[in-house]
Design a protein around this nucleic acid. Structure first.
Length: 139
DNA sequence: GCCAACGTTGGC
DNA sequence: GCCAACGTTGGC
């Protein structure tokens, strides 16, 4: 099992919208960055990820699961771009804010901290466990 | 709303 | 293949 983090601006695609899709899930489309795409190519069905709200909220709000591996992005004809499908699993009891993450030295190496612009990124097992703990949920 | 950081594009 | 110019992202 590999863990990931999906970043979205809530005004574009929010956690609530993701939850509303239920088990059908939704394409994580619109990614136009090679690094992010390459991470999506590595994802396997059953991998889990955090759902992060960028901009206004700046907090991890929920846990998602990969339900379809990388396939062409339906929002473009450009065959370079691919995406996975994800579904909402559960919300964090308490969202974990960027401020909290930055304030915890055990999380100082998170990609979220080091490369704030990358929209799809890996999360280590340890980071996953810590944040689930802080968020009041089991992984 | 600003701006730093970063990725991509295109001219040479 | 380099690099300047440009566009975008996202924290502040």
């Amino acid at each position: 099992m590999t863990y990931w983090l999906f970043k979205s601006e809530p005004s574009t695609w929010s956690w609530d919208q993701q939850v509303a899709r239920g088990d059908a899930g939704e394409e994580w489309d619109g990614v136009r960055n090679y690094q992010a795409r390459n991470f999506m190519r590595e994802m396997k069905v059953g991998d889990r990820g955090f759902f992060y709200h960028s901009q206004k909220d700046k907090e991890i709000v929920g846990i998602v699961e990969v339900i379809a591996e990388a396939h062409p992005d339906s929002t473009t004809d450009d065959e370079r771009w691919e995406c996975v499908d994800i579904k909402a699993v559960k919300p964090l009891k308490t969202p974990v804010t960027l401020e909290q993450i930055k304030g915890d030295e055990r999380l100082a190496d998170m990609v979220l901290v080091k490369n704030s612009r990358l929209s799809v990124q890996p999360v280590s097992d340890r980071e996953w466990a810590l944040i689930c703990d802080m968020g009041g949920v089991g992984g």
